[in-house]
Design a protein around this nucleic acid. Structure first.
Length: 427
RNA sequence: GCCGAGGUAGCAAAGUCUGGCCUAACGCGCCGGCCUUGAGAGCCGGUUCCCCUUUCGGGGAGCGAGAGUUCAAAUCUCUCCCUCGGCGCCA
């Protein structure tokens, strides 16, 4: 959510930033918002004046009552009786305006950092770094789907029978590989100063709104029927929501959390895309990084989170590239976003493994996560950041492809050997 | 799920029965100022949010959330949420 005060003071600054997203509807929303806010303030003043008068009369009534001046008392009470209805009427009206204003604010995206490349769609994203050498195969590399099916590591057919498309059974060595990856991920994050946290997978609506998942991405999340609960698509939701309505201390910054949870996504907008295997599914386990900090440190922290992801993927020796996501592809919450894309030999291309976002104060303002330098000093809005470390199922697809052998067996990355009693997966 | 006790500002804590100088006391912590060579003590002001005002300042809201009664609600009524204790059930 944008700062309404900044919108009042520097509407042109906001307008220019929103324009970079190449969506004219945002500019229309901004104009509407400014108009509504003006109305709101005028009405607020009117209501406050009425309340002031009511409070003054209430004071007089108290005095007159103590003095026992019945005549005057009756007159003033009669006068006072008229005010509540007027207030009520105006309150009903201002509430509508307020809701509309809030709705516009909830839909307007975050301000973009100046270093975000101007562009549209994936084509506009900017590769800023490439790491590792893509392996040269002297045979035709198989896809992760083929590899896993042949090795009896997944069963998507029967999963479809019980749950539908985009569900899966994970089997045998793959199960152990998952736990090895989780352990490895957690160990790295612990060493990098993160508190380890397993989160509730269900969260309330206001937390989903606060995180920016609602209302804009409503179709991407599962809702529990008859309950005020949604299945979180990422532990970012509960972890950022954890400090909602709190006032933190600057001395504690940065707060760093390593979240582990199952993530649930409808994948509503992805019909026909990546339908096979466990690359894109309705549920997956994810180890996530979250930071809460102040505006002075959040850009350094953004690099720190990405660096942490790099350390992890380098330890697995997966070739990847770092991509700066462009203005047209970044989504409403992040002010800047890097993706880490891993190499898929069967597709001869890089695919997203990690997304690292600085959400600046966008989520924190919605969730009222504030901080002080010290007790007694004024409160400020925090900055929140998030980054994947590894989404297990997606990550496994990349590992499997890069570590395949000609006979269809799979080597286990060296760094995981200490967690497993096998070094390869064979038929 | 049942019974009981609670939820008041950064922390702590009174007020609730009996509605009205509650402008939410007293305290701790912290910030600013005065004083001091410096620190401490002491004194003064401040320490949630919103609106008006260039400034000075003025006003409004807020006592877990929401609704209601009333000229007036932290205080009375209703619904809901959460915490703690006891009982029950349970992986």
């Amino acid at each position: 959510m944008l700062d309404i005060k900044l919108i009042r003071e520097k509407p042109d600054f906001i307008r220019e930033n929103l324009a970079r997203r190449r969506k004219p509807e945002y500019l229309e929303m901004l104009d509407e918002l400014i108009e509504e806010d003006k109305k709101w303030r005028e009405m607020k003043l009117e209501i406050d004046k009425l309340r002031q008068k009511r409070n003054q009369l209430t004071g007089k009534i108290r005095e007159l009552k103590q003095q026992g001046r019945e005549e005057e008392l009756k007159k003033i009470i009669a006068e006072a009786k008229e005010i509540p209805d007027k207030i009520k009427e105006l309150e009903d009206e201002i509430q509508k305006i307020e809701e509309h204003r809030r709705d516009l604010l909830l839909h307007l995206p975050n301000l973009l950092h100046e270093s975000v490349p101007y562009g549209e769609g994936e084509e506009g994203n900017l590769v800023v770094k490439t790491w590792g050498e893509t392996r040269k195969f002297d045979f035709q590399p198989k896809s992760h789907v083929d590899l896993m099916e042949k090795l009896n590591l997944i069963d998507t057919q029967r999963a479809a029978k019980i749950s539908g498309a985009r569900f899966y059974f994970m089997k045998n060595e793959l199960v152990e590989l998952e736990y090895a990856l989780i352990q490895h991920a957690i160990r790295i994050l612990k060493d990098r100063g993160f508190d380890l946290i397993v989160t509730p997978p269900l969260v309330k609506e206001y937390i989903m709104i606060g995180g920016g998942f609602l209302p804009t991405y409503r179709e991407d999340v599962y809702k529990i029927e008859d309950e005020d609960l949604f299945l979180a698509g990422t532990s970012e939701a509960p972890l950022v929501g954890m400090h909602a309505d709190e006032i933190l201390y600057q001395d504690d910054f940065p707060l760093r959390y390593a979240g582990f949870s199952t993530c649930y996504r409808t994948e509503a907008g992805a019909h026909g895309k990546d339908t096979k295997g466990i690359f894109r599914t309705h549920h997956f386990e994810k180890v996530e990084q979250i930071s809460i900090t102040g505006p002075e440190q959040s850009w350094d922290e953004h690099e720190y989170l990405f660096e942490t992801a790099e350390i992890f993927w380098q330890s697995l020796e997966i070739p990847y590239r770092k991509v700066n996501i462009c203005t047209g592809d970044i989504g409403i919450v992040a002010a800047k976003k890097y993706d880490l894309e891993g190499w898929y030999p069967s597709q001869q291309t890089y695919r997203e493994l990690v997304s690292t976002s600085n959400c600046t104060d966008y989520q924190a303002r919605r969730l009222k996560i504030r901080y002080r330098e010290k007790d007694g000093m004024p409160t400020k809005i925090c900055h929140t950041l998030n980054s994947t470390l590894i989404a297990i199922q997606r990550g496994i697809t990349c590992i499997v492809e890069n570590y395949q052998r000609e006979d269809g067996s799979i080597e286990i990355p060296k760094v995981l050997h200490k967690y497993l009693d096998f070094k390869e997966i064979t038929p």
